[in-house]
């Protein structure tokens, strides 16, 4: 599923994206989530960190959705809706940082391996083999155990797990680009390696990076939620969607809304980034538009 680059012309990309209802749905939801994250303080009806006295029954059970707490309360008597709204920030922030880092590492190593080939490529690609053989989740759990979990650390752990896919795709693509006419020509004209990589290679890698940058956020959002669910993610009381489910787990039979709402938020966000990414892929690669 590599993209063989033809320099994309933006208007046509946008046009084809607009004709794809699934991708447009993704785009709208993604924009919505971004807006919610940006304006969380204005949108959240309550302070997401406040443990309300009246937010728990006298026996200590959470409240189901009601007039005061629209989506109910969590096991500490906090407003679930407000926590979900603030949780969008964490998901997106970790998604952007982690995926940005993964993209950077992956593109750099992949293109270096593809362009220079030889021993360097062998080492880098063997290393990606090893990373692929690693049980990713166990690696992430072990790393978060070593490092003190904070938003940045969680993002970096995810990046360390996720860069491999990008590196492999970029490698394959660089390999074919390096043999293409315009690179050979530039080489013949005496352009230096750095100049060729930056001037000629990277622009052609951009569409791939854009697609993987979007698709990857979906994976990242899921992984962040999973780590938080296992209790090794972003630290409480920071509201993280996965963390909310972790805290509510023992109560899911009597308070299923505490799993259902955050679960839906994760699903919706992940699906939307996937749909958008897939739409971009088709729009950027005419060959896929059958």
């Amino acid at each position: 599923m590599t993209l063989i680059a033809s320099t994309p012309s933006r208007p046509s990309t946008w046009r084809s994206l607009r004709r794809n209802p699934a991708a447009m749905f993704g785009l709208i939801v993604v924009l919505l989530v971004i807006l919610i994250a940006l304006f969380a303080p204005l949108l959240a009806p309550k302070n997401p960190a406040e443990q309300f006295f009246e937010g728990l029954t006298l026996e200590g059970s959470p409240l189901s959705p009601n007039q005061d707490f629209w989506l109910g309360t969590d096991l500490l008597g906090r407003d679930l809706l407000s926590r979900l709204i603030y949780g969008a920030r964490i998901s997106l922030l970790v998604g952007l940082i982690a995926n940005g880092a993964a993209l950077l590492i992956g593109t750099l190593l992949g293109s270096l391996a593809g362009y220079f080939g030889g021993a360097l490529a062998k080492i880098i690609m063997r290393f990606t083999d090893i990373m692929m053989a690693f049980p990713a989740l166990l690696l992430a759990i072990a790393l978060s155990a070593i490092l003190r979990p904070s938003l940045w650390i969680v993002a970096m752990v995810i990046a360390l797990v996720n860069w491999v896919q990008v590196a492999r795709v970029v490698y394959a693509q660089t390999l074919s680009l390096a043999e293409s006419e315009f690179v050979t020509a530039a080489n013949a004209l005496g352009a230096g390696n750095g100049r060729i990589m930056f001037r000629h290679l990277f622009p052609h890698l951009l569409p791939t990076m854009l697609v993987y940058g979007t698709l990857g956020i979906s994976t990242t959002v899921l992984l962040e939620a999973t780590l938080s669910f296992l209790g090794v993610g972003v630290q409480p009381p920071t509201p993280s969607w996965g963390g909310i489910i972790n805290e509510s787990q023992s109560y899911f039979l009597t308070a299923p809304w505490l799993v259902f709402f955050p679960g839906s938020a994760i699903l919706l966000t992940a699906v939307s980034f996937n749909l958008l990414g897939d739409g971009l892929r088709e729009a950027l690669d005419p060959k896929l538009r059958r």
Binding site: A49, E50, Q51, L75, L76, A145, R148, P149, G231, V232, Q235, P236, P237, N246, E247, Q249, S250
Partner: peptide, 26 residues
């Protein structure tokens, strides 16, 4: 569970008297 929840409750109580406690649940 329930230790992160108990720790968060303690954290809120500490905040009420001005002590800001960073949580490390590990």
């Amino acid at each position: 569970d329930p230790n992160p929840r108990i720790a968060q409750s303690i954290q809120q109580d500490l905040a009420a008297i001005g002590i800001s406690a960073e949580l490390r649940t590990q």
